[in-house]
């Protein structure tokens, strides 16, 4: 076993990540190999130094245990738990669910009844509306309608004549001109 692997195993052992059988094997290896034992000693010294380097008297002086604040926190926790488990709270919590369930059931029932009702209605009467005849204009539009002068002339002619010689027919008017 090389030194790096040994250090890994030692670190895992300290971190509680080795199974019992591997720990037993490691212990046996350390007993049998003096070089491994020396490496393990170096590792332990390094870790102890690191632990000591981290410690500090000023930091180790703990402030007093905050008993009053802790008790207040615990009291609020217990009070909250008492509220959560009280029967009144349970009813208060359940009531809206109850009501909304009832409302949902009523809506479903209404929808069902409406569906039944619509099934009982007679089918809509279908009637034929006959053939629609489109009335063609009496004369085609004048040519050159996109010319401004032609448009003016056409407008003047329309104003002069009592009835326009040509006009667009709309679908509403088609019904009026439907042949009888």
């Amino acid at each position: 076993m090389d030194a790096a692997t040994l250090r890994r195993l030692l670190a895992d052992r300290d971190g509680g990540a080795l199974s019992d059988d591997v720990m037993a094997l490691l212990a046996a290896h350390l007993k049998q190999a003096p070089a491994a034992q020396s490496e393990a000693d170096q590792y332990t010294t390094m870790m102890n130094d690191a632990r000591t380097a981290m410690s500090n008297r000023a930091q180790d002086d703990l402030p007093a245990f905050p008993r009053a604040a802790v008790e207040t926190g615990l009291r609020s926790l217990l009070a909250q738990a008492a509220v959560d488990t009280s029967p009144r709270r349970a009813v208060t919590l359940r009531r809206p669910g109850w009501l909304s369930g009832l409302a949902a059931a009523a809506c479903l029932a209404l929808a069902f009844l409406a569906g039944r009702q619509s099934q009982s209605l007679p089918p809509l009467a279908m009637t034929s509306v006959g053939t629609v005849a489109i009335v063609e204009p009496a004369s085609p539009p004048r040519s050159g309608m996109w010319s401004l002068d032609a448009a003016r002339r056409s407008a003047r002619a329309d104003v002069a004549s009592s009835a326009p010689s040509w006009k667009w027919s709309s679908p509403l008017e088609w019904r009026v001109t439907r042949p009888s």
């Binding site: 500090n56 930091q59 703990l62 402030p63 905050p66 604040a69 802790v70 008790e71 926190g73 615990l74």
Partner: peptide
């Protein structure tokens, strides 16, 4: 302590940690 500026801050944070522990016991 290694993360906060003053010892007072550190003490405060330590006590707050245990108050949180009480609140979420």
């Amino acid at each position: 302590s290694r993360r906060l500026r003053t010892r007072e801050d550190a003490e405060d944070a330590l006590q707050a940690t245990f108050v949180e522990a009480a609140r979420h016991y």
